[in-house]
Design a protein around this nucleic acid. Structure first.
Length: 418
RNA sequence: GUGGGGGUAGCUCAGCUGGUUAGAGCUCCAGGUUGUGGUCCUGGCGGUCGCGGGUUCGAAUCCCGUUCCUCACCCCA
């Protein structure tokens, strides 16, 4: 046992008992996204490392410690994608998608990798779905993306989501806020944690995200970004909230919400759940008006979100699978000669769209019946010498216990009519 | 990288102030008279008690090391 192989730390197998639920989940995503006019994009599982270091931010800790990065045979540094916005934008630029229309709406649902110590809701290989609306600088686009995220979580049945919204301003406003924040924090420098002290230089806004109680207290008097916004930024933020209000989407303004990505401008948002554990963010996103240009495209505004599938599943908790009403047949052979005609019969049923299973272990009738029940078949079709002789089959309904003799010629139509 | 909890049958766990052949429930398999499930009854398969070392006449049980899982911290795209 100790010598056998095990899934890599932070990765999980999905067994048949799990995949049913995943497929349902995925169906909701695909359906809703299509309904909202978003088209699916699938990008390669790895990219040049530089794509991420340039977009996510050079913060070397993150880039070097939390990404799966390796050198390939031609000495190129590649990275298993840790997020999907940058790859999606890369594809958008590469395929000149701006020429297909002024507004491009894309969604994805794919697998990502991060090398972190696993815990509840945080795996090393995990899945996200998300949407990106590329081309519009206007607040209704921010709102649509947020509303879409809410709609999906709602459809999935997430119970107590909290929507947090904030704005980090355009780069102009943010610059002004940044210097005010630095002015505020510098005199307090010695009371800050080591990482926060570093950030004071590299990325002071991130300090707002701290969970350190002492720092949270210090920050209660910190300048508010809303006071540093220029009028366009302020107007944009107000409009976004206005749309949310109009649609009755409850949300909280959190002026401390600064998402970790460097590329955000103006709107940032997050949806959290109390039912998940320490990693409570189900979904996060925001506007990134400068990213596409940074990656070598034309200046193009965009806004999007990404949501963690495993975390949402956690928030949903255990759900009992509902029994399907669909007819599912298990063929029971009661004699050796019946085995000979087994395939023909099974094929006939399957070709007619009837879910069919049977035993290949040559087990007793009792064992076959047991198996049928275990597999939750709705009906048993029993064939033995007797039935072969008069070209019929017994059809037993497991729910009612009723059993009828049906002629072979009528079997398919009989089963289909159930 | 740091800290807490935990590794005993396929699963959930009991046993752990050391004592002879290691248990339960569920699952699985097989029977309960002729070819019929689920319920019920009976029986069976299944464990070198995570791995290595130590203490002891004797260790699942005590000690040390190690590894994996898990939750949390850090961090969070």
């Amino acid at each position: 046992m100790s010598k056998s192989f095990q899934a890599i730390k932070g990765t999980k197998d999905l067994l048949p008992v799990d995949t049913a639920r995943w497929r349902e989940f995925e169906a909701v995503i695909h359906d809703t996204m299509q309904q909202w006019g978003f088209g699916e994009i699938r990008t390669p599982i790895f990219e040049k490392t530089e794509l991420f270091s340039r977009s996510v931010g050079e913060e070397s800790d993150i880039v070097s410690k939390q990404m799966y990065t390796f050198i390939d045979q031609s000495d190129t540094s590649l990275t298993l994608r840790p997020e999907l916005t940058a790859p999606t934008m890369r594809a958008y630029i590469q395929h000149n998608m701006d020429r297909e229309g002024a507004l491009t709406k894309l969604y994805y649902m794919d697998t990502l990798f991060r090398q972190e110590r696993p815990q509840a809701g945080r795996l090393r290989q995990f899945n996200q779905f998300g949407a990106e609306a590329i081309g519009s600088p206007h607040p209704e686009q921010d709102a649509e993306v947020i509303v879409l995220a809410c709609a999906i979580l709602n459809k999935l049945g997430v119970a107590n989501p909290t929507v947090l919204v904030n704005t980090v301003g355009s780069s102009e406003s943010r610059e002004r806020y940044r210097s005010e924040l630095v002015n505020f924090l510098t005199p307090l420098k010695n009371e800050l944690s080591e990482t926060s002290q570093k950030r004071l230089k590299s990325n002071p806004l991130r300090i707002l995200d701290t969970k350190d109680k002492k720092e949270v207290a210090l920050l209660s008097d910190a300048p508010d970004i809303l006071n540093c916004l220029n009028s366009e930024d302020l107007h944009h933020f107000e409009k976004v909230q206005g749309f949310l209000n109009e649609l009755g989407i409850a949300h909280e303004c959190s002026n401390k919400l600064v998402r970790g990505l460097d590329y955000y401008t103006r709107t940032t948002f997050e949806i959290t759940s109390p039912d998940v554990g320490a990693q409570n963010a189900l979904c996060g996103g925001g506007r990134y008006d400068e990213l596409i240009e940074q990656l070598g495209g034309k200046p193009t505004p965009a806004v999007g979100f990404a949501a963690g599938i495993e975390r949402i599943m956690l928030a949903l908790g255990e759900k009992q699978d509902q029994t399907t009403e669909k007819v599912m047949v298990y063929i029971v052979t009661a004699s050796e000669s019946a085995v000979d005609s087994l395939f023909r019969l099974a094929n006939k049923l399957r070709q007619n769209g009837i879910s069919t299973s049977f035993d290949t272990l040559r087990r007793s009738v009792k064992a076959q019946m047991r198996e049928a029940n275990r597999l939750a078949a709705t009906h048993a079709v029993i064939v033995g010498d007797e039935e072969i002789a008069d070209s019929s089959a017994k059809v037993k309904n497991f729910k009612t216990g009723e059993q009828n003799t049906i002629s072979m010629n009528d079997l398919v139509s009989h089963l289909k009519s159930l």
